[in-house]
Amino acid sequence: MIETAGLRKEFVVSAKVGKLRRERRVVAAVDGIDLRVERGETLGYLGPNGAGKSTTLKMLTGVLTPTAGRISVCGLTPVPQRTQLARRIGVVFGQRSQLWWDLPLRDSFDLLRHIYRVPAPEHAGRLAECVELLDLGPLLPVPVRQLSLGQRMRGELTAALLHRPEVLFLDEPTIGLDVVSKQAVREFLTQLGRRGDTTLILTTHDLADIERLCRRLVIVDHGRVVHDGTAEELHSRYGSRRRVVVDLDEPLAEPVTLPGVALESAEGLRLTYQLVDGTNAGALVARLAAAASLRDLAVVEPAIEDVIARLYARGATG
């Protein structure tokens, strides 16, 4: 569905040095990205601020000309075939609107039907579905400028989907939304992803979006791919481990040791163990229960935040 090879985008930035002199510098915002996305995949495209995510999406959607490299989306070359491509993709840029500011939301949807030349019954069906799932009913007669951000985002999502795009690009679709709106959007995208006929490319800084939605993560930094795989692969590659945290009633008589288990910290009566790759918690818990009386016990999954923070930090120094 999407294929890029050696995709690159350079920006010329000119900065003031001294009073009059301006210095022109070339910055590679995207620095050689090879990507292959199959139909129906849901891909989380992550990276720290300024990593080149939005720039990549702009090139994939045909609004920005790459400096070098090849792109194919839906079998088309985005920039030269932008208008054709526009019919087959949907795009939501979190901070921008594609709705008509002064007109009621319903008018925007109606206009999009004409612009994309979607047959009326098909359009009505899909709109009804989105209205239902995203709870848009009461918002339809409201002028877009009077919608709150979260309300508008639900409108934007609908607008991007009414022509049944094969690929949906979402650049920070949950930015600035409250917990409830975020959940609504996530739920909606999850259902869309599950159906399997729409390819989803999603950038976000909200890792909960990713955990809920994406099997595959592509992490970029400084315009390069630093990870491409599942979250589990990410964890094992960067050594994140599950932990067992126990609170004891009394100190252990002697330390509990097991293969694949390492004591990470002991603070008073609280012990934290790390489970090295693939070790189960069962044996450890049984040994602990036998050795002392337990007040409380928790198995903590590794947080994707931690791995990614480590990954970003490594990028910043490296």
Partner: peptide
Amino acid sequence: GDVVADLLRPVP
């Protein structure tokens, strides 16, 4: 940059 919304439509 809002012009992207115009460019992302299938009409010139």
